[in-house]
């Protein structure tokens, strides 16, 4: 069974189709990089897969379930543009909160584990408000990975990260892929993304212009896909 399946998905803003008949799939262990220009529909597609809005037509499945099913939601982890943690709460309180919402057996223990993995255990009781930018980003990674999601949806994950956060994220993503998890990410940073990607999909004005495995020539020259399939 595919981890992520997108079948004939259309998404409309009024009458304007932001996604036009998108078909994609990702198997467990695959890392799909969504590339394309600004406004091509990458974020819209990721948010629709994550279940933030319903497709106008077509079907999305996460291990066979609709994205709004509780089972599917437990399996998904999403990192968007914001860090999705509360400034007024401490790092530990934030992670415990999400641990509770995801129904983890021991939210505090999982929270402590992830604080350690992201190097935040020393500041676990500090308010997020007082954190540096890098620390906030690492906390955001911990927040998204806390419930051990099997499908990771990442919207421009490497944008605006500092070096340490990029290192933490790449490390965590590599481990996730090695253990058979699925990643779908939208990105402009082709170099960082193509190091991880097993598959590439190029979106152009809401349509899939190219979808296939990541080949050596793409990894060698990130502009190659655009030159070959894009802007047509």
């Amino acid at each position: 069974m595919n981890a992520v399946g997108v079948e004939g998905v259309w998404k409309f803003y009024g009458d304007y189709p932001a996604l036009r008949d998108v078909n994609l799939e990702a198997e467990p262990g695959a890392c799909l990089a969504l590339i394309g220009r600004n406004g091509a529909g990458k974020t819209t597609l990721l948010r629709t897969i994550a279940g933030f809005s319903r497709p106008g037509k077509g079907k999305i499945s996460i291990f066979g379930n609709s994205p709004r099913d509780t089972e599917a939601r437990k399996k998904m982890g999403y990192i968007g543009h914001g860090i999705s943690v509360y400034d007024e709460l401490s790092a530990l309180e934030n992670l415990t909160l999400y641990g509770r919402l995801y129904g983890l057996a021991d939210p505090r223990k999982s929270a402590m584990e992830w604080l350690e993995r992201t190097g935040l255990e020393r500041v676990k009781n500090g308010l997020v408000r007082e954190f540096s930018r890098g620390m906030r980003q690492r906390l955001a990674v911990a927040r998204a990975f806390l419930h051990e999601p099997r499908v990771l949806l990442l919207d421009e994950p490497f944008t605006a990260l500092d070096d340490r956060a990029i290192a933490v994220l790449q490390q965590v993503l590599r481990e996730a892929l090695a253990s058979g998890k699925t990643i779908v990410m939208s990105t402009h940073q082709l170099r960082e993304a193509l190091e991880l990607a097993t598959h590439v999909a190029l979106l152009n004005r809401g349509q899939v212009a190219f979808h296939g495995p990541c080949t050596p020539e793409m990894a060698a020259d990130p502009g190659w896909v655009y030159a070959r399939y894009g802007e047509g």
């Binding site: 939601r73 914001g82 400034d87 999400y98 919402l101």
Partner: peptide, 14 residues
């Protein structure tokens, strides 16, 4: 709204 927390709440399985 501040840190896009609403997204994370909507994504959570509740």
């Amino acid at each position: 709204l501040g840190n896009d927390c609403l997204d994370a709440l909507i994504a959570a399985p509740i």
